[in-house]
Design a protein around this nucleic acid. Structure first.
Lengths: 234, 234
DNA sequence: GCGTCTGTTTGCGCCAGCGCAAATTCGATC
DNA sequence: GATCGAATTTGCGCTGGCGCAAACAGACGC
């Protein structure tokens, strides 16, 4: 296995306070993987033998119910860790991770987790803050699911995805990975039909542009109004 | 302030691996408070100056939306920490904590958090596992909110509360703190009216007994069937 | 023991959004 | 550029559960 280059991970917040020799050690024990679009990186309930760092691409984290319904718990973007169940004292993955586009990930055996925690300055603190902010985030979504109408929830999700994973285009901010109506439905607890109707209505009002697995936010402000429950003017 | 007795906290998982002198140090810096039923321990968004250990009683953790709707995020029972936002790198509390019954809590200034983490063996690991399991839990609820009908969600919540905070009585397992229809509604994203109708229907079928701020699970098995979406027989 | 207040029950009408089904369009592939 | 499959759109009917409103019942203070 050829040694990976330090520059791959040097800029990440996760390793902000790590020393160069730490980076080398981290990299020397890493496996680097290419993951094709729609490939599963790890499966819910499976033994959590490895943890991963997403170097490039986007990954969706999905839970499946006994009834076969899927729910997208969150999207992960480059620079974030995945499969860190181990950090929380679990031995199995609580959800599946699927590449939303072709991805590059680094993988380490879970057995190395304690070593990372102990030896990389700032690693523990950063990851725990990550877990904490994910908790905040999921709690916020729970509140939204409990109190808001479908239109507001969909508006919020579209806005959040555009903010966090947006790419400016001539027309507005486009979500920079393929996302279907079904995906949005699975993030908002509704059906692809309803999402389709909403996007069509918004497009007619000029709030968004959308196509096959593609959504562009044109008027973020008015969409924000919708998300907050104030009926959008016009 | 009189020194608190070690036995107050010696049995807790949180201090399982702490040494007796650690316990004394922890206690000597603690304030002990009695909190009357329905009193707020800390308010969402407020500056997180303290963290708390619930010694006795039950606390509900509540988030309020801009629109004024409340959502009960979880119940905390004796032995658990609350207000540990600080651990996750936040400076304000993400939710409010309200005493569900008369409670006894210990409080420490948040500034002491790093000291606890560094000096009490096992403290860090245990609390991070707690955060991790809360994340799992909220994620599971998010999935339920997204995919299940109201009746299933209410059944699940009642079962969970009875399991975690149940007290055996002659008739079944009673949730051992006062809980209103409104409270259950705020945990399941529905209205008190619907909860009332469901409990009435279940009571007619002999699955539960309930009264003013009181719920007893009589037939856990059949209620579990409901929670899993299989229509209950009879 | 009496009034009051808070929590609960229940009836009724309505509608947001689901389920089903069919048509359509867009990309990708050969 | 013809073919095929997946994603999307759209119509239609139905219903779970909400909103409103009013009556009711326990518990608690005086």
């Amino acid at each position: 296995m050829s040694q990976l280059d330090r520059s791959l991970i040097a800029g990440l917040p996760l390793f902000r306070t790590a020393k160069p020799e730490d980076l080398d050690r981290v990299l020397s024990s890493a496996r680097s993987l290419r993951v094709a679009k729609d490939t599963t990186i790890f499966e819910e309930e499976a033994e959590g033998h490895s943890f991963f760092l997403l170097l490039d691409g986007h990954v969706r984290v999905v839970k499946t119910t006994p009834g076969g319904d899927q729910v997208i718990v969150r999207y992960i973007s480059a620079g974030e860790l995945i499969g860190i169940a181990h950090a929380m004292g679990r031995t199995t993955y609580p959800a599946s991770a699927v590449a939303a586009v072709d991805c590059v990930v680094l993988a380490w055996p879970s057995a190395m987790w304690p070593e990372f925690m102990a030896q990389i300055p700032g690693f523990g603190e950063t990851t725990y803050q990550t877990v904490g902010s994910r908790l905040q985030d999921v709690q916020a979504r729970l509140v939204e699911m409990s109190t808001e109408q479908v239109e507001q929830r969909v508006a919020r999700v579209v806005l959040r995805l555009a903010e966090q994973n947006g790419r400016k285009t001539g027309e507005g901010v486009e979500i920079d990975f393929p996302i279907s109506r079904q995906d949005i439905a699975e993030m908002t607890g509704t059906t692809l039909h309803t999402v389709s109707r909403l996007l069509a209505a918004w497009e007619a009002k000029g709030l968004v542009k959308s196509g096959r697995q593609r959504v562009t936010v044109v008027e973020a402000g008015r969409l924000q109004s919708l998300a907050e429950g104030r009926a959008a003017s016009t």
